[in-house]
Amino acid sequence: MAEELTFSTDPQWRVKVGLAEMLKGGVIMDVTNADQARIAEKAGACAVMALERVPADIRKEGGVARMASPKIIREIQAAVTIPVMAKARIGHFAEAQVLEALAVDFIDESEVLTPADEENHIWKQSFRIPFVCGARNLGEALRRIAEGAAMIRTKGEAGSGNIVEAVRHMRAIVGEMKRLTLLGEEELIGASKQLGAPLDLVRWVARNGKLPVPNFSAGGVATPADAALVVQLGAEAVFVGSGVFKSSDPERRAHAIVKATTHARDPKVVLEASEELGEAMKGLDVRQLDEKELLQTRGW
């Protein structure tokens, strides 16, 4: 590497990205109670995301979606040995402070919850706990990294059971990174302006062809083949929200998605994982959703 990012040698930063590295190749599952967390761990999840309602229910029930109650988070922390993540509302740094005080292992500043600030995201560099943030394109991913995110995930369309948006976002991020690698030095300032992203990060991506933090996929994964798809498109690990516990047989489906993630490039194993599963969650046609029903347009 010709030059390092100014923050990449900071020990705090390296420890944050280090945990993200440990989660690679794995599946992070949304859980709403200790029992679900145990099922997820037993099925081979590499981490769980503690929340009060899965995205499909948030979508159905409406109302303001907030950080999960500390009680639920504590119960989940006590139930499993794998890392426990929890969601904070976009821009709600006080929720993030509470989650840090709870010593969760990772905070997801998530568009699935109702945003608390429509102008600003959380300044994540001032926290000791690592953050993951959603992104629909490279500019958004790099803005979040500049704020201190140690992991990026596609936003997809949470709670839809429809992989189309996660695919769109992963292809956008990977495609824009490829494009940067072809640009000359003098073109990078223009790219930085166009992406709305800091020049040092744009330069880093242009030289390395990847994000400086792990790049995961989320939002709409419902089947083993969905997981295999996003991994082959470039996701280094997979988040599954409503897909597991909104299906007819969560234990088997969880295990099947874990297996398909590790063996994404081996169709025989993905086939094996796809067999004898109960029904997947029903899912939504994202095109039929109203603009204001979309979760992915929250944040910028």
Partner: peptide, 29 residues
């Protein structure tokens, strides 16, 4: 997880029997 959750993760330097120079050690959970 004997050192605790992620907030206890750290980078230190330590001596090994392999070298007189301390080496960097990254502890994560």
């Amino acid at each position: 997880n004997a050192y605790g959750p992620q907030i206890e993760s750290c980078v230190t330097r330590g001596i090994t029997t392999l070298s007189d120079q301390p080496i960097e050690m990254v502890f994560i959970r």
